[in-house]
Design a protein around this nucleic acid. Structure first.
Lengths: 270, 270
DNA sequence: CAGTGGTCTAGACCACCGA
DNA sequence: CGGTGGTCTAGACCACTGA
């Protein structure tokens, strides 16, 4: 039988050497899956600008040859990049580097519904953004000891539905991860900050942890939301993480839930 | 070449007919992926009790033979069930039907933390259980039109941490799905109602939808929780679903979040 | 050691796209 | 029609488990 795939580098001269595979054998799969290695290499090539936003990648069989792996392995690697909104597959056309609008990440972790259960998509209004020293709590949440620069950009924004303010949010992100963020233009039609993080800084939020409680409105917040001072508000304190559990954003959301409610879905449908 | 896999049912008598595959060819893949079909069939077998909680499933190659597909397809199907916490894979041992304990289902959808982020596991205290006619809202949430008997069992219980009541819950379940529930003994050491649903009725909650807002305490609730009347409470209205999006429980949770907060985790770590 | 899940390969055939 | 991504197969070899 010449069917011994995994040992055939010993069998004699073969034109297409599965280099990645050989390397993996040699290092005894120290830590990473082959398709993960390929994924990292593709990310590397992307960050080096080998393929720019909107560009078409080589077809999958060519990618397989380029990286010395099978098409299935390429598909696993590319598949995760598609899940991460970094690449986009188009059947019959090819695989492309994602552009901003393509990733409809919008409100993946933030859903609002009214009493009837109907989903609402608030528009956000940027009030301010400034560079600040982080508070104790923020240092802890964002693990700022990772960086030499421990300042954060502190953003204030409002959520509005039908012109009425229903909530406000105060995201803080490490300056070290988002250099120059305060100088970027915030497009009012950007659907969410997370899509901005992705398109401008290639940082993907893949997971969030949130603590939910009740707060009463301070005078300033009451003015912003048009409620009476001391009015009870839903308070959501949320940490957003990217790969390898690196926290990238800490935000406090305050919601007036008299007309809308915060929606959570957990578990997967079968 | 005898390598034409997909057409070999035309080649003559073959011992192992890939029935699922042939069927799929015949119906021209009307809508579903093969591995999704297999997944559905496994779910069907599970809901019929073919494999009970904790049971070991046949090895993957046997499953492949049973369903007339390849091991890769079985792995795709089983993999999604593992992701959904329905099955558990153990390398070198086998694949098993998830138990509450293994899947850490207890409080899977209900986490409480204090200000320092420390997790707390409240004890629950049953106040009452009674058979009632469902309200409009409950009929809607539980889709009671599915059943001829549209009554529900309405349960009242308290959550306590260190002896102090921090919340109360009012689960309602269809009498049609949980016959005789009011006569069952509720062990105070049952970790959650969901484990009871699972062990006594073989009903697995795999997904929840929740709407979160703020309410003020009615006099009765204020007495239960030891807060002043009108005190703001976190209100969680939650529908729990089993397989095939069948709702099995509708509950309203009221929490005093002055000392604890409701914890949500979404997305998966990579 | 045998049995099991975990990873990967090579290649077949499909559905879809646009010229 | 050719090119592309999408799905599936058969089988090899690996790492892990427990007797």
């Amino acid at each position: 039988m010449a069917e011994v795939h995994q040992g055939r580098e010993l069998g004699g001269p073969i034109s297409r050497l599965p280099l990645a595979h050989v390397a993996r054998r040699l290092q005894d799969m120290r830590n990473m899956l082959l398709y993960k290695e390929v994924k990292e290499k593709i990310i590397q090539a992307l960050s080096e600008g080998k393929w720019q936003a909107g560009d078409k990648l080589p077809v999958e069989s060519d990618l397989a040859d380029m990286y010395g792996v099978s098409k299935s392995t390429i598909r696993a690697a590319v598949g995760e990049l598609v899940d991460a909104n970094i690449l986009v597959r188009k059947q019959g056309k090819g695989t492309f580097v994602a552009t901003e609008k393509v990733s409809r990440n919008l409100y993946r972790f933030f859903h609002l519904v009214d009493a009837s259960g109907k989903r609402h998509y608030p528009v956000r209004q940027l009030l301010s953004i400034s560079r600040e020293a982080a508070t104790e709590k923020t240092i802890d949440a964002l693990q700022l000891y990772r960086y030499s620069d421990r300042d954060v950009f502190s953003i204030h924004m409002l959520f509005k539905i039908n012109g009425r303010a229903v909530g406000r949010s105060n995201p803080c992100v490490p300056v070290a991860l988002f250099p120059g963020l305060d100088a970027k233009e915030f497009q009012p039609d950007d659907v969410s900050l997370y899509s901005l993080y992705h398109t401008m800084y290639n940082i993907n939020v893949i997971r969030v942890e949130a603590n939910v409680g009740v707060s009463s409105a301070t005078p300033a917040v009451a003015r912003e939301l048009g409620v009476r001072p001391q009015a009870p508000l839903l308070r959501i304190e949320r940490i957003a993480y990217t790969y390898q559990d690196v926290p990238v954003e800490y935000r406090t959301i305050l919601l007036d839930t008299s007309e809308i409610q915060y929606r959570i879905e957990q578990g997967s449908s079968v």
